[in-house]
């Protein structure tokens, strides 16, 4: 392979008691691509994602970021390496403003004595950057950056969470079921958002149960089965029904054209 993967995992193993959630699982994310991860419930795809985002630590195997082996002890550690995760629950504080939420846990302080001694936040700068990020992603239909998150619609909340990830995720953005809780129209807007983020050169790992959405935005599809990667296909080589058949074991991996 000529292109080096941004994020790769080799031989990941994770056991919970007698259950093997990951059984020598491999994963590869190439620069600039949207890689969808699909799999039946219990196939271990969320365990794999948690290992990549630092939420769990695998029992064996290596994770490589741009070719170098890394270990993430926590989601914070993964974040420090430029891997941002948009959780299914979004992890936003509803009563706080959009700007507050975007900079939660990594607030900016005023320069000079007010910031150093009195720890004063640089609110104008945080607002400016938050607004900039939202308009960059085409989300400035939100009226005010000081609006609290609970006054936003589901799709707008998703937008804020994605904007936060895009603002800080320099290398990889992981999105867990971003369209699951949304209506048809808002789901489409989130797909647009994924394309926008991709166009900015940041690769995305998309976990989804929604096959039409997966086939619409994914460049490649990682099909997970029984704790490991069954195969990687391209949406143009594979019908949706084939993907489901592969996921459930009704079709064997040898019977489909696999991606490089």
């Amino acid at each position: 392979m000529s292109v080096k993967p941004v994020l790769a995992a080799r031989g990941l193993v994770k056991r919970y008691g007698r259950v093997t959630a990951l059984d020598h699982c491999d994963f590869e994310l190439l620069p600039g691509e949207v890689m969808a991860v699909i799999g039946d419930n219990g196939a271990g795809k969320s365990t794999m994602i948690k290992a990549l985002s630092g939420a769990i630590q695998p029992d064996a195997g290596v994770i490589e970021l741009e070719g170098k082996p890394v270990t993430f002890n926590s989601p914070i550690a993964a974040r420090e390496h430029g891997i941002e995760t948009v959780y299914q629950t979004l992890a936003l504080s509803p009563a706080l403003s959009i700007a507050d939420n975007m900079f939660m846990g990594r607030e900016l302080r005023k320069p000079g004595i007010m910031g150093r001694v009195f720890h004063q936040l640089d609110k104008p700068e945080m607002r400016r950057r938050a607004r900039g990020k939202l308009s960059e992603l085409g989300l400035m239909t939100i009226q005010s950056i000081d609006q609290s998150v609970e006054t936003l619609s589901g799709g707008q909340r998703q937008g804020v969470a994605v904007a936060r990830a895009a603002a800080f995720g320099s290398r990889v953005i992981i999105m867990d079921e971003p369209t699951a809780a949304l209506g048809v129209k808002e789901g489409q807007r989130v797909l647009d958002l994924i394309r926008t983020v991709k166009a900015r050169g940041v690769p995305i790992i998309l976990i989804s149960h929604n096959m039409p959405h997966v086939f619409e935005v994914a460049d490649r599809i990682h099909i997970h089965r029984l704790g490991r990667r069954l195969c990687v296909v391209r949406p143009e080589d594979c019908k949706m029904s084939d993907a489901v058949a592969l996921m459930t074991g009704a079709m064997r991996a040898e019977d489909i054209k696999q991606s490089a």
Binding site: T89, L90, A91, S93, P94, M104, G105, E107
Partner: peptide, 18 residues
């Protein structure tokens, strides 16, 4: 801000890096 975030939703605050 962290005090408010923790009171609002501790799980979300934790995932946001608080």
């Amino acid at each position: 801000r962290h005090v408010y975030a923790v009171g609002d939703d501790p799980a979300a605050a934790e995932l946001s890096g608080v």
